[in-house]
Design a protein around this nucleic acid. Sequence first.
DNA 1: AAGATATGTCAACATGACTGACATAAATTT
DNA 2: AAATTTATGTCAGTCATGTTGACATATCTT
Lengths: 182, 182
Amino acid sequence: MTDINFSRGPTNPDSQGATSPAPRLAELRWDIIELLFFAYRDFVGDADHELEAFGFGRAHHRVMHFVYRYPGLKVADLLDVLRITKQSLGRVLKQLLDEGYIVQKTGNNDRRQRLLYATPKGEALVAKLAGLQTDRITRALRDINPEGVAAISQFLRAMIDRDDPDKVLEAIFGTGSKKPRE
Amino acid sequence: MTDINFSRGPTNPDSQGATSPAPRLAELRWDIIELLFFAYRDFVGDADHELEAFGFGRAHHRVMHFVYRYPGLKVADLLDVLRITKQSLGRVLKQLLDEGYIVQKTGNNDRRQRLLYATPKGEALVAKLAGLQTDRITRALRDINPEGVAAISQFLRAMIDRDDPDKVLEAIFGTGSKKPRE
DNA sequence: AAGATATGTCAACATGACTGACATAAATTT
DNA sequence: AAATTTATGTCAGTCATGTTGACATATCTT
């Protein structure tokens, strides 16, 4: 049936790269690279299935998530966090507004701003999706002690770029280095 | 300037959900959910930038990666791993074949099969991308002790679905439970 | 009053998914 | 040997989500 050569690792990689730059094949972290790929694939897969029932995609989930988690988020903030263009955001945001998952409120100080808030309907969706993902996370953390959990958190944080952090990342990392007091 | 309400967490979420199912908002792992989002975004971002120089996208990277790592992978295996349709795979695979990053060899036992192998050119690309990602991983693991690293590995493994594992996952997890001896 | 900023929108396009239908060669079953 | 199944490839059309560029409007700042 599956009579394929499935010995792990490339067949003698160093001997084949006749013209390749031979870049430190030994110390590459293939293990973590692949684990991250599969873990993230299944992690987002949980939400993907549920989203189909709503006629939404991942893009809608991301918007709903951050609007729910950071109430009063401005459109510009959302663009920073998601790193997409306003045209892309506009499409999904319009749908979420039209279908009553999100509401806009004009900014108090700056009336140009549209502050975004999740409606109860939106909250329910976000909570449902986060519940599925939390189930997976809780399962995965079950047999890991507090020190291990701390290491996981530290690792994930250290994987994130800290240059030019957006408002959400500032909140997550508690960047108190902007406007120290004043 | 940014005079937005940025207090963490939704404003009293339980009081707003008049009609929502109020699903255990307390114990949701928002922290890990968001860390995974940002960590994965920046993790794949490393490769994305480099891929632009080659005129390739993420799809090409995934194919190259697994073909390099598991030499002699069949097309069908690749479809299982990537969980895409053969039409989608066909497009990127054709490009990679045409441009000399991958070669096909007819299966020895089953001449219908096309076994896939990375060329030196393909190996160089994969190694370059894996190098970038390894740099980030190594940096993130720098201050974590061996027990912590073990916990991270255990966590990522436990995040992955084990029902119906593909050939790559079997290799990663060393599933010796199929055809125990016989 | 002039300029900058925050947001929205129209139009065109690219990538990478998808479905459905169909073709070919080779293996397997009857 | 013939029929069926399997592994792969391909054509054609669609969808979701990203992109660029141009432009409009309201509002804040200078």
